[in-house]
Simulated scan of single mutants.
Amino acid sequence: MGGESVRVDTWVWGVRLAKTRSQATTACRAGHVRVNGATAKASQAVRLGDEVRVRQHGFDKVYRVTGLPVRRGSADEAAKHFEDLTPPPLPRVERPAEIVRDRGAGRPTKRERRDIDRLRGRDGEG
C-alpha cells in the first residue's frame, strides 16, 4: 500500500476511528461513512485531500485526509493522517441548580397541610 489511495474502510481503521477492520467495513455498509458527501462503499478509494464524514455515537465527525496509513499505528501516528474539521458542539443550556416551586403550586408542604386541616376542622384528630 502507501500509493495514491487506500480503501476507505482501511483508512478509517488505520486512523483509529474504528477498533477493528470489520467494524470499519460494517460502518461503511450501514451508510455511516461518507467520502466527499457521497455514501461510501467499503472498497471505495480515499485520496489525499478528501473529506471523510464518520457517524460516531450519534454525531457526524468530519475529517480531511492528510495521509494514507500503510498500517495501523499508535494514536500519535494516526493523528498525522487526518485533520479534524468537526464544528464545535453547541453550548449546553444552563439549568438552575435548584428547582424553586412557587408558593401554592404543586403539593402542599407539611406546614400548609396543617393549615388546611385546621381550616377544615380536623385539628388533632387522627
Rank of each mutant, 00 (worst) to 15 (best):
G3F: 04
G3Y: 06
G3T: 11
G3S: 11
E4F: 09
E4D: 14
E4P: 10
E4W: 09
E4S: 12
E4Q: 15
S5I: 01
S5P: 01
S5M: 06
S5N: 08
V6K: 02
V6F: 00
V6Q: 02
V6A: 01
R7D: 04
R7S: 05
R7H: 10
D9R: 04
D9E: 12
D9K: 07
D9M: 13
T10A: 13
T10G: 13
V12S: 04
V12P: 03
V12Q: 01
V12G: 05
W13A: 05
W13C: 12
W13N: 12
W13Y: 15
W13R: 08
W13T: 14
G14N: 04
G14Y: 00
G14K: 10
G14V: 13
V15A: 03
V15Y: 00
V15Q: 01
V15W: 01
V15K: 00
V15R: 00
R16Q: 06
R16A: 07
R16W: 07
L17K: 11
L17V: 12
L17W: 02
A18S: 13
A18R: 03
A18G: 03
A18W: 01
K19N: 08
K19R: 15
T20W: 04
T20D: 05
T20A: 03
T20N: 07
T20Y: 02
R21H: 08
R21D: 03
R21C: 11
R21E: 05
S22W: 02
S22T: 13
S22A: 12
Q23R: 11
A24Q: 00
A24L: 05
T25D: 11
T25R: 15
T25Q: 15
T25W: 03
T25P: 02
T25M: 13
T25L: 12
T26R: 15
T26P: 01
T26G: 09
A27D: 14
A27I: 07
A27F: 13
C28A: 13
C28E: 09
R29Q: 14
R29E: 14
R29C: 03
A30Y: 00
G31K: 08
H32D: 15
H32F: 14
H32T: 08
H32G: 06
V33W: 01
V33T: 09
V33N: 09
V33F: 11
V33R: 00
R34K: 15
R34I: 10
R34M: 09
R34V: 09
V35T: 13
V35W: 06
V35S: 06
V35K: 10
V35L: 13
N36H: 07
N36I: 05
N36G: 07
N36R: 12
G37N: 02
G37S: 06
G37T: 07
G37V: 08
G37E: 03
G37H: 03
A38W: 03
A38K: 10
A38Q: 09
A38I: 05
A38L: 07
